[in-house]
Design a protein around this nucleic acid. Structure first.
Length: 270
DNA sequence: GTGCTCGGGAAATTGC
DNA sequence: AGCAATTTCCCGAGCA
């Protein structure tokens, strides 16, 4: 569904912005090499045991409403609009992110504002934010905030946006809850844990050059627990499948999440 | 009871 | 001016 939704209009819409994004990405790739895989490995390793315990948390809101008409998955916001203001205060500048600082400022007309979910995706690939936000399962777009430092990330977000008052995790979480209405990000029934919509994740990952596919560690983890896996076959790929999990599955099996992204039939084209 | 997290209503703010 | 996307404040609920 998303494949057909995204392809046509996306190509038309992105054009110049996408070219800009490529420029940004190229600059980025020249200036920094991310060890996100390793971070992901460590994270997964540390959480491997907790993952099993976590499964019981994954009881999704039965009243969750798929975006449907509310959210247009054709949305093709450019990546270049996430260019930082480079006006980060002491908190963030104290731990400068090359990712941010090397990006050019582009505030031309038609540039959309930086969205929170885009910032979070950036932060997930920012080593400096590794103590605030981490992937729980990168391939599935599940991430969690670190309780101890979640306020730091929130403050950076607030500074990035140039808010008058200090952003707090509570306020940022309120914005995240709004996403569950529109579908960009949904809350996972686990403490401080959220999940990107796969289509959004795929788009962000593609545009930023980060693979959203399962890492070898993911695969290893997957194989390790393969006996426990339940392979849900859904005739509806990507979004429908994703929403199906949230809407209809009584219990969320993390193994399913690890599985679904390995199914080539359930690809999300961008 | 307390602290933390979560969920959501509602008004205000900001940028396009 | 209208709208989208938050931001801000607030209240209540559940849990350890």
């Amino acid at each position: 569904m998303v494949s057909s939704l995204t392809q046509g209009s996306l190509e038309n819409d992105i054009n110049q912005d996408f070219q800009d994004a490529i420029d940004v990405i190229q600059r980025h790739s020249q200036t920094r090499h991310y060890d996100t895989e390793n971070k992901s490995y460590e994270n997964l390793e540390s959480q491997q045991s907790s993952v099993r315990h976590a499964i019981s948390y994954y009881q999704f809101t039965p009243h969750f409403e798929p975006p449907g008409s509310m959210y247009d998955w054709n949305e093709s916001s450019s990546w270049s609009h996430i260019v930082p203001d480079v006006s980060l205060g002491p908190l963030c500048s104290a731990e400068p992110s090359v990712f941010y600082s090397n990006l050019p400022q582009r505030h031309g007309k038609g540039r959309k504002k930086l969205r929170l979910y885009e910032y979070l995706h950036e932060a997930l690939h920012d080593d400096n934010m590794g103590d605030s936000i981490q992937w729980t399962d990168r391939g599935s777009g599940i991430f969690h905030f670190i309780s101890k430092n979640k306020e730091k990330l929130a403050e950076c977000w607030g500074q990035r946006k140039g808010n008058r008052k200090t952003m707090t995790y509570q306020k940022m979480a309120r914005a995240l809850r709004n996403y569950s209405r529109t579908g960009e990000i949904v809350k996972v029934r686990r403490k401080l844990t959220y999940q990107f919509n796969p289509a959004i994740l795929q788009r962000l990952s593609s545009l930023s050059g980060y693979s959203s596919g399962p890492s070898s560690r993911d695969m290893a983890l997957h194989q390790q627990g393969s006996a426990e896996h339940v392979y849900y076959s859904s005739p509806l790929p990507d979004c429908h499948y994703w929403y199906g999990q949230y809407s209809y599955q009584g219990e969320y099996d993390l193994a399913t999440v690890l599985t679904v992204h390995e199914d080539p039939k359930i690809g999300v084209s961008v």
